[in-house]
C-alpha cells in the first residue's frame, strides 16, 4: 500500500464502500470489498517479486565475493612475486650492460691512444723526419698494433653482443607488467561491483572475467601458479624430443 496511486485507489474504493453501505446496497458493497482485496494481493505479489530479485542479486554478489577471495589469496601474492621478478630482471640486465660497457671502455681508450701515437710517428715518417733505427721500431709497433686490434675487435664485438642480449628483459618484463595491470583492473571492477551490490539494489551481471587466459607469459620462479611451466630451454628440448622431435 505504499505508492500514491495505491493510496488513491484505496481511498476511492473505501468512499464508494461507505456510500453503498449507507444507501443500503450490501451486494454492491461486497463486490467493492472483493476489489479491495484483489488490490492488496497484487501489491503483495509485487513485494515478493522485489524480494526475489534481491535474493538473486545477493547470490550474484556472493560469486563476486568468491572471485575477490581468489584475487586476494592467490593472485595478489602472485602479482607481488611477478613484480619482484621484474625488479630482479631489470637489475640483472642493467648489471650485464654496465659490465660489458666497463670492459669495452678501456679497449676503446687504448685504441685511441695507440692510434694517436702511431699517427704522429707515421706523419714524421712521411715527412722524412725519421731515422732508420726509428723506422724499424715503428714497423714493429705497427705489427703489434694490428694483431692487438684484431684480438680486441673480437672482444669489442663480444661486449656489444652482451649488451644486445641484455635488452631481452624489456619484452619479458613488459608481458609481466601487462598481466599485473589487468589483475589490478579486475580487482578494481570486482570491488566496484561489490560496493554497487551492497550499497544499492542495482542490477549486477558480471562474472565473465573468469575465462582462463591461454597465454600466461614468462615463467616466474617462485610463482605458485607456474608449477606446470618448463624450467628453461633444456626442458623444452626434452619435451620435444619425447614427442619425436
Amino acid at each position: 500500500m505504499s505508492t500514491k496511486e495505491n493510496k488513491d485507489e484505496y481511498l476511492a474504493k473505501a468512499r464508494a464502500l461507505v456510500k453503498k453501505l449507507e444507501s443500503g446496497e450490501p451486494g454492491e458493497a461486497d463486490s467493492i470489498l472483493d476489489e479491495m482485496i484483489n488490490l492488496r494481493e497484487s501489491s503483495l505479489f509485487q513485494e515478493i517479486g522485489k524480494l526475489t530479485r534481491q535474493l538473486h542479486e545477493t547470490i550474484n554478489g556472493f560469486q563476486i565475493d568468491s572471485r575477490l577471495h581468489v584475487l586476494t589469496n592467490n593472485e595478489i601474492p602472485d602479482a607481488k612475486e611477478r613484480l619482484n621478478y621484474v625488479i630482479a630482471m631489470t637489475e640483472q640486465s642493467a648489471n650485464r650492460t654496465l659490465s660489458a660497457v666497463e670492459k669495452a671502455i678501456p679497449i676503446s681508450e687504448e685504441l685511441k691512444n695507440r692510434s694517436d701515437d702511431l699517427n704522429t710517428k707515421w706523419d714524421r715518417f712521411r715527412h722524412r723526419q725519421m731515422t732508420v733505427e726509428e723506422f724499424r721500431s715503428l714497423s714493429k709497433e705497427i705489427d703489434e698494433f694490428m694483431s692487438w686490434t684484431s684480438g680486441n675487435a673480437g672482444q669489442m664485438h663480444e661486449n656489444l653482443s652482451e649488451i644486445l642480449m641484455a635488452q631481452d628483459f624489456q619484452d619479458l618484463t613488459g608481458q609481466i607488467i601487462r598481466k599485473v595491470i589487468s589483475l589490478v583492473q579486475e580487482m578494481e571492477s570486482s570491488l566496484v561491483e561489490l560496493i554497487r551490490i551492497t550499497g544499492s539494489r542495482l542490477k549486477a551481471e558480471s562474472s565473465e572475467n573468469e575465462d582462463k587466459i591461454a597465454c600466461d607469459g614468462p615463467r616466474i620462479p617462485g610463482c605458485e601458479s607456474h608449477k606446470d611451466r618448463v624450467n628453461g630451454q633444456d626442458e623444452v628440448d626434452d619435451l620435444l624430443s619425447s614427442l619425436g622431435f
Binding site: D171, L172, Q175, A214, C215, D216, G217, P218, R219, D228, R229, V230, V236, L239, L240, L243, F245
Partner: peptide, 13 residues
C-alpha cells in the same frame, strides 16, 4: 616465446 606451459609446447609441436 616466453610461453612455457608444457601443453603449449605440445600444441606447437
Amino acid at each position: 616465446t616466453a610461453e612455457a606451459k608444457r601443453e603449449q609446447i605440445v600444441e606447437a609441436a
